[in-house]
Amino acid sequence: MISDWNDAYANGAYIQGAEQFPEQWIQQAAQFREGLIAANRARLDLGYGASERERFDLFMPEGPAIGLAVFVHGGYWRMFDKSSWSHLARGAVERGYAVLIPSYTLCPQATIAEITGQIARAISQAAGMVSGPIHLSGHSAGGHLVSRMACALSPLGQGAASRLGHVLSISGLHDLRPLLKTDLNRELRLDWATATAESAALQAPRSGTRLTAWVGGDERPEFIRQSELIANIWTGCAVDTSLVVEAGRHHFDVIDGLADANSAMVDHWLSQ
């Protein structure tokens, strides 16, 4: 039985050198962006809404894009923006996809439901710029957001939704009700009704969904349980669902595979 829910959802305290990761991400992202800017293959700070943070970056492959791949960042809906994650587009870009990485308004300035709507608008706008299938990925809170796009009751427009391919939720949060017991909720402002409504594991999946819940084997038990949960429930809803527990990976390095076109993660995600 869990007695300390703050600890159950704490990641950094259990990762050696955790404080070094944000700066590494920023440096790797900037280096990748600079390369694509020089090649005229980066479209930066495109607006998809009225608020300051409703902006996305779109990274293009060398030739015509065969589809749209999306990465939605995490940070408990409270931290980061698109600029820390550009390098995670590398794998899909090198496989011939255009890659969308959006920012979104953070809690408490926005509710999680409002953020869900923003991500749907960003995907829909980018879908109008790139033809072909749309594959979604997201990490932690971003894993929640892309899973919500695959729910039957999703704000994603029918045009983009009809093109959804593989949804890859990496260390995603799929049942938000436990967060009511954490200090995070001071900023998330969830109650039982909103936590339930925004939990993908408690929603009916969209017909035809293909979802993989991918999680590190060295993550906190709650993140493993959350991934197991949606894989279990959505399998019971007759969805093409799989669970991957990647050995030796923790919450901060489990995303590294997205930056490698030859990784098992990218190969699995972009497979038809």
Rank of each mutant, 00 (worst) to 15 (best):
P108N: 04
A231T: 13
G132W: 07
L156W: 10
A150W: 13
P155T: 03
G159P: 06
L243M: 09
E219L: 08
R210A: 11
V167A: 08
A231P: 04
A201F: 02
I115K: 05
F252Q: 06
R210M: 09
H174A: 00
L176I: 09
P221R: 04
L156R: 12
E246L: 03
S242L: 03
I119G: 03
I123D: 10
C151K: 09
H166Y: 06
Q158K: 13
A150K: 13
R206T: 00
E114L: 03
F223L: 15
M149L: 10
T111S: 15
D175F: 09
L136Y: 04
H139E: 04
D183M: 09
I134N: 11
A231Y: 06
S207H: 07
V244R: 15
L190I: 02
W214P: 01
L202R: 14
I170R: 11
D253Q: 01
T212L: 11
V239N: 08
S131D: 15
R210L: 03
L176V: 03
T235C: 11
C151P: 09
P205Q: 02
L188I: 06
G236S: 12
H144R: 02
P108I: 00
T182R: 07
R206I: 00
L180F: 07
V239L: 05
T209L: 15
I233N: 10
W192K: 14
D240W: 02
G165H: 10
Q118P: 01
G236L: 12
A127V: 00
V215R: 12
R189G: 01
L190F: 05
G216A: 05
L156M: 05
S227A: 14
S137F: 01
A197L: 11
I115H: 08
A195W: 12
S227C: 14
P133M: 04
F252S: 00
H139I: 03
G138R: 06
D218K: 13
A193N: 14
W192D: 12
P178N: 13
T235I: 03
N185D: 03
W234D: 05
A238P: 01
E187V: 00
A213F: 00
A161C: 10
T209A: 15
G159E: 14
D218A: 14
S147D: 01
T209N: 07
L243G: 06
L188S: 11
L176Q: 08
L190C: 06
E246S: 12
S154P: 07
K181E: 12
L136R: 07
P133Y: 02
A150H: 05
E219K: 10
L153A: 14
A247Y: 01
R177F: 05
S154E: 06
H174L: 00
T241E: 02
S242E: 14
L176R: 12
L153Y: 09
G117K: 14
V239F: 10
T212V: 11
R189H: 14
A238G: 12
V244H: 14
A195K: 09
T116R: 15
G236F: 12
